[in-house]
Design a protein around this nucleic acid. Sequence first.
DNA 1: TGTTAGCACTCGATTTTACCGAGTGCTAAC
DNA 2: GTTAGCACTCGGTAAAATCGAGTGCTAACA
Lengths: 348, 348
Amino acid sequence: MARRAKTPAAPASDLDARKATILEAVVVEHIDTAQPVGSSSVAHHADLGVSSATVRSEMVALEREGYLAQPHTSAGRVPTDKGYRYFVDHLASGVLGPAQQFQVKEFFSHVRGEVEDVLEQTSLLLSQLTSYTSVVVGSGHSRASVLSVQLVNLDARHHLLVTVYSDGTVTKHSVLASFEATHVEVTEASRQLNALLIGTTLDATVQVPSRTDTVARLVREAVSVLHAEAPTMDGDQVYIGGSSHVAEVFEGVETVRKVLSILEQELLVVSLVEDILEKGVSVAIGSEHGYEPLSSCAVIVAPVSVEGETVGAVGLLGPTRMKYQEVMAAAEAVSQHLTHHFGGVDRG
Amino acid sequence: MARRAKTPAAPASDLDARKATILEAVVVEHIDTAQPVGSSSVAHHADLGVSSATVRSEMVALEREGYLAQPHTSAGRVPTDKGYRYFVDHLASGVLGPAQQFQVKEFFSHVRGEVEDVLEQTSLLLSQLTSYTSVVVGSGHSRASVLSVQLVNLDARHHLLVTVYSDGTVTKHSVLASFEATHVEVTEASRQLNALLIGTTLDATVQVPSRTDTVARLVREAVSVLHAEAPTMDGDQVYIGGSSHVAEVFEGVETVRKVLSILEQELLVVSLVEDILEKGVSVAIGSEHGYEPLSSCAVIVAPVSVEGETVGAVGLLGPTRMKYQEVMAAAEAVSQHLTHHFGGVDRG
DNA sequence: TGTTAGCACTCGATTTTACCGAGTGCTAAC
DNA sequence: GTTAGCACTCGGTAAAATCGAGTGCTAACA
């Protein structure tokens, strides 16, 4: 089941025009009303000159093939995950409304400041734009090289190691030494650290001095603290916007709780988004992403890249019956603006 | 109404022993069951040797005085905000269960790392401990002095200003110059900035050089960027833990949405907590805190101080019928451990 | 062969009714 | 001041009745 995402457009999954239209009508109406959709309603709205009886027989076919489901006899049909999948792959195409377009342009012509701030505000923009919960991920400095290191002493034993990377990120690490060091020694250690680390990446090994004087010990201490972080893959930034929308768009306390509790775990959110990106898909529906607690969710992602390399992503999370067209358009637009923003103007 | 918080123990608000006991019984049971509490149940559980009829007449008195309310005739009583207020001021006293005590001790004997990380993890601890949503606030570096400034150039025009403060916080600001600067000039500017700013606080004015050479212009640019932040009172850190609990402990989608949407606005949360602290109260019930959307909430706060000065706070947010005793005990314990942690051991 | 009108049937949702009983307020007796 | 007794209220629950949207099927039709 979860495999399907790998082949978004399965070869044999083509429906004839009428079935497709019917499926589309069902999806659209169900997204709008959250109710099962009946044959007569479809016959009426989708204007294929055909009666409800015909629609009905097509619907049993669609149900047999797994695109639709019936909550119970004598109710209308509801799209399955497969139905939504077909919808987004073949049918959904939307452009951003003019008001939204304006809002996005407005936003990006006015934002400035640190990358972090831009990303955070972008997540707010996205959630406002769509009324769903947004996720903005900025990938960490795993491949960035060190531009500058500085050891600052707070007191004789406590020092702060501040590192600046070529991508403009800054980290700090406290270094607690078992020995005391003078201001001069710390300054010297700082100088040596610079010489040692500038231009390297976190995963590179460096030659630390083996001497036993205070400065050398400080340097060793600092390097080890810094490198201790590398394996944790830390540095990814996550910004979640509009989590209150979760309470609106999902029904059932338990679902809301589950989703919120996922959103709390930032690492998990990052890997969710990265997983989806990796699969080369822009939408993960229901169980496709493999996170069971999110089985009633759809996640839409769009990468943000600079110079061909993916440096982040924007995502939107909603119920499987979300407004795919609007939301995909919004994600697309924002990711492009972001790409442009970081590629062209500021480096913050 | 909202004024009452200023005088937690109003002079005339003393109830005789029996009324107090009855009120307590009602509060305790209602917190436990979320149901209106009837006279017979009180008569049974609170063992004042008295019949339900007597309790009943006392309850009408308590209702007349505003401590209890009746959802409708022929239902039991429910505490009002005033009732809860009396409860927390006069009756609630709780100690942490041994298991929780152990968990807290365990936690603080193992945490290490940057202040930010400790605070974030503390918020998780608190929410686990109590099953409510926690808020941990670390006050910003408004009064901290500058320990070190460094200007790092990303390219000819983009520079990064990294500032380290005496409280161990680090900020970065991007400086986008309208002119190009060489590496040497940036280094020199960095040196001059250090000379200029070390030891000052953000609100102090400094003598910037009025020369028009590149270095001086860089220095001026950097100083202005840095000081531009001061008025925004930025730098407060907020960590919110267990927001998924909101979906459990509040009833009604609308309430959940409101609360979540408040929690999204970090600035608002900070001022909420600070307001409450300022009033010298540790619990704000219902409308006491003056934030209308949180009128069905109670907020418990406990300050964290180092050397007599308040440097932060921990808070817990739940429904007015929350488990005050446990939660107050937890907040108390954690805030003390935090105080001790920052006062004694590490400076991060 | 595909389409359609007609029709009996299903079954969840809604409304109605009846009823129960927890809890109250009141009163009279202790 | 306390209590037993009692009539009364009224929300909650359950059973019954009803409704109607929607189905599946069939037979006629183009």
